[in-house]
Write a protein that binds this DNA or RNA. Structure first.
Lengths: 153, 153
DNA sequence: ATTCTTATTGATAATTATTATCAGATGATA
DNA sequence: TATCATCTGATAATAATTATCAATAAGAAT
């Protein structure tokens, strides 16, 4: 039987390797997270996951997200807003962050020259990964703002 | 009379320009924030600020931090942990983020080649600022972890 | 300096976000 | 299928943030 593909397969493997159970809830949460690129909150993950597996608690979602994080399958995204946000850990990529609405978009353009940034070993830090955050206004907020500007005159 | 220097002066100017009062609390919070590079939480700012201006409420600190943010004097730092963290907005700089303890250190080495990263105008985004996040282990956590490894064998 | 107006603050309650507890359910293994 | 360890749901507890409102203080105009 072929191994499951993608992050689901990775999770199953990692669980077996560490001897921790592959529960329906863990599958559901990962499936809910793997399908999207919008860095959902725990509550959004809960909504999506319990659509497929009704009865799931938000507490379970938090627990599972923590587990997936420890397994290295998911991770919480650095952002400036309230409430944690999560994504499937699918390798290094960059983020477009809207300073107005807080939306975070993935930027899966490796921008190779960016990755050659000299990793500073300052202060005894050992760098494992580099993420570039491009902060600015998303299209929607840019429009909203220029409309606002016009109104103010 | 010479204008006040640094972020304090900037705040005072911005307040006057917008006709909002320069209160003792706003000064105290900014002073508490301007002095440090460790990206404190609201509670830490509260502790520092109320040391100089006793009686300040945490709610006020939150309000003031929001105001300073709107003025462009302070901002909340993107990070993956629980609870917002703040810094004085002192221009673009980069962050060393410890994935183990969550500590965030400033990296004020402009790394000029990094700043020439082609700002992607993807999806209608207008980029205003670029921050690079170097994720890894800080010295302390690296030591702790290798000690742990040794113990596990 | 005094008064007036308006925005801010402290005290507090209310929300929202996250974690802990514990009895019962479930996954892995023999 | 029986066993054991772990997990989950239900719930309570805690942490983080925001809202409410009367009293206060800042800034402008006397």
């Amino acid at each position: 039987m072929a191994a499951e593909t993608g992050s689901m397969g990775r999770m199953v493997d990692l669980c077996r390797r560490r001897g921790i159970p592959v529960t329906a809830q863990r599958r559901a949460v990962l499936r809910a997270l793997a399908g999207r690129r919008d860095h959902p909150t725990a509550e959004q993950v809960h909504a999506a996951a319990s659509a497929r597996l009704p009865g799931m608690t938000l507490a379970t979602v938090y627990r599972v997200l923590g587990t997936l994080e420890r397994l290295g399958v998911a991770r919480r995204v650095a952002h400036a807003g309230t409430g944690a946000r999560f994504e499937v850990d699918s390798g290094a990529h960059h983020h477009l962050v809207c300073t107005s609405c807080g939306r975070i978009l993935d930027l899966r353009d490796p921008a190779p020259e960016a990755l050659s940034i000299p990793a500073p070993r300052a202060s005894g830090f050992s760098i494992q990964e580099i993420t570039i955050q491009f902060r600015g206004l998303c299209r929607a907020c840019r429009r909203r703002r220029s409309a606002h500007e016009r109104r103010r005159r």
